[in-house]
Design a protein around this nucleic acid. Structure first.
Lengths: 196, 196
DNA sequence: CCTACCGATCGGTAGG
DNA sequence: CCTACCGATCGGTAGG
């Protein structure tokens, strides 16, 4: 039904994503995947070459989406840094919520990639984090953000966002845009009341 | 050397914790564990009953430590809520940094517990999160904390803390107490500069 | 896409 | 704690 318009290969990726998220990459067998697809285990291999190839596609596709969203959010140099940061946060949340299963795999299962893919993946992730770090550095230098240790602050910031796939359920009380807005507020303004 | 004073069972737990963290529970074989311990695979079973028993011990031991730390941090009712929250945050970070490998297993590998342990574990985790949520609710009611949605805020708060085992390395530039202090500051005060 | 199968490896046990 | 082994299951392939 919901996958009727997907190619078999895309069906495999989608179903595998859900299983990898629920049970983990290593604990998901190709026979489980085949059963979920309604075919026999051997038949999968006429569409893909290996189990890891599926994981590879999921991880690097998400990396692309995070990068594209960040570029789009921060390309306007005339915006105040705090606004660019807010837009980058909201973009990150949008990617996370658009496909929570794929996001969870991206965040937790990448370590099952073998070399050299694993090292490539970590380099991409580091590059992405560096984008947030640079925003905080710029904000701190111009005095619009309080971040005495930008490297530390950017890690904490992404940490808060990346926990989202563990509890977010599509169709819940909060729409993705609401979540993005609230997260950005909490991270930018903190929990303690302001005097002014 | 470093495990010379541990019982064989404790050595098994400790070595398994490191392997479970690095490769995941499902992808770690008992033969790898045995090799790391310098014995044969079959020999492990004279000290433990099953692979899952090790995971069970790690997960529930950490749960105990988080609870004990939280109780200790918040038992003083005369403190302002914001101070209790800060103490609870610092306690959480102390437990995380005291054994990062065990913390990472606690945070990521619990889903490989079979029933009923898995449900019991999730109930404990929910109970722990409820403690933080209640602090935020109390703080919001007395006007000392800004948390229009305490459930949302407490999830975000713990999320920021729980990412720590993915990047923290003992012996680094920052001592655990420094990290705890900075995290508490960032979460309580936010990233944006204050006017006052 | 299925049937039938491969070599490897898994968690765990018996007997010493 | 080791040797020797169990039944089950793994990712993947050949041939149709």
């Amino acid at each position: 039904m919901e996958t009727a318009l997907l190619s078999r290969k895309d069906q495999i990726d989608h179903t595998a994503t859900v299983l990898f998220r629920a049970r983990g990459f290593a604990a998901t067998s190709m026979r489980e995947l085949a059963t979920a697809l309604g075919i026999e285990a051997g038949s999968i291999y006429s569409h893909i070459r290996s189990k890891e190839e599926i994981l590879h596609r999921i991880c690097f596709r998400l990396a692309d989406q995070f990068f594209a969203g960040f570029e789009d959010a921060t390309q306007n140099n005339t915006l105040p840094i705090a606004d660019s940061l807010r837009r980058a946060i909201e973009s990150h949340v949008q990617v996370l919520t658009a496909d929570v299963a794929a996001s969870a795999v991206f965040l937790h299962e990448w370590r099952h990639l073998s070399e050299p893919a694993r090292t490539e993946f970590l380099a991409l992730r580091e590059q992405y984090e560096a984008g947030f770090r640079q925003l905080l550095i710029n904000g701190a230098e111009t005095g619009t953000l309080y971040a005495p240790d930008p490297a530390f602050a950017s890690l904490t910031l992404l940490a808060s966002l990346n926990w989202l796939p563990t509890w977010y359920a599509p169709g819940g009380k909060l729409a993705p845009a609401d979540i993005a807005h609230r997260l950005a507020n909490q991270l930018l303004f903190g929990l303690e009341v302001r005097e002014n």
